[in-house]
């Protein structure tokens, strides 16, 4: 199996038409290896979220290819894309985005249930919740826990299907700095323990010391700022 889990080839994303056209991403290419902890940084409006949406198969590029686990994804149908998101991607959103109608445990079980797995799902979810330090919150309604706890649960939910890549868009953007620090630490511990690839969008790279790579986005173009690994083939 190749070590490259994700590759973007000349990805552009253009919103709108004519005079109001916005080129949110402009010919972005890079590769990411298994187990890398990658930051995407850039100022507001630079195109970070747009890029993450491309990687997360939530939106399709206007030009270019997104290759996930060796598979070109831009030509997949909606149902296949959903399956890819379920199996190969884990999401952690800025506002945790747990489903408020479900308990913490049910939220973490959900990606497995969507996949159609029925064995051990409760156990898997419980194990992860213990790992992220939420053993006391397991059966609470997910809108009855704190923001930091919700973000931990969201990380557990993002990890539960053992995805190829976990994506997070400003996962600490809504937290105070102490809580944010704890969440960052948790993400990094998990990444190391599970050899899990993480791609995290942030506008504050100082919250994430010692990452493997930092990709900077400026006006829709990507720049490798701190390059600890070879990316050009």
């Amino acid at each position: 199996m190749s070590d490259i889990v994700l590759e973007l080839q000349n990805v552009s994303r253009i919103f709108g038409e004519g005079d109001t056209q916005v080129k949110a991403l402009d010919d972005v290419s890079f590769k990411i290896k298994r187990g890398e902890f990658v930051l995407i940084v850039g100022s507001s409006g630079s195109g970070k979220s747009t890029l993450l949406n491309m990687i997360g198969l939530l939106d399709k590029p206007t030009f270019g290819k997104v290759i996930l686990d060796g598979k070109e994804t831009t030509t997949l149908k909606d149902g296949q894309v959903s399956q890819y998101r379920n199996e190969k991607l884990g999401f952690v959103f800025q506002f945790a985005n747990l489903l408020p109608d479900l308990t913490v445990l049910e939220n973490v079980m959900l990606p497995q249930q969507i996949q159609g797995i029925s064995e051990d799902i409760r156990q898997n979810a419980t194990d992860l919740l213990i790992k992220v330090g939420l053993e006391d919150q397991i059966n609470k309604r997910s809108n009855k826990i704190s923001g930091g706890q919700a973000q931990r649960a969201a990380i557990a939910r993002g990890l539960v299907n053992r995805p190829t890549v976990v994506l997070a868009d400003e996962p600490t953007g809504n937290l105070d700095s102490v809580t944010a620090g704890k969440v960052v630490k948790l993400a990094k511990t998990m990444a190391k323990e599970l050899n899990q690839t993480f791609i995290i969008v942030t506008h504050d790279k100082h919250q994430f010391p010692d990452v493997d790579r930092i990709i900077t986005i400026k006006d829709g173009k990507s720049y490798e700022e701190e390059n600890t690994m070879e990316i050009t083939v």
Partner: peptide
């Protein structure tokens, strides 16, 4: 919520 479900793979 529907968006979240779709993002985490619900068809």
């Amino acid at each position: 919520e529907i968006g979240v479900m779709r993002a985490i793979g619900a068809k």
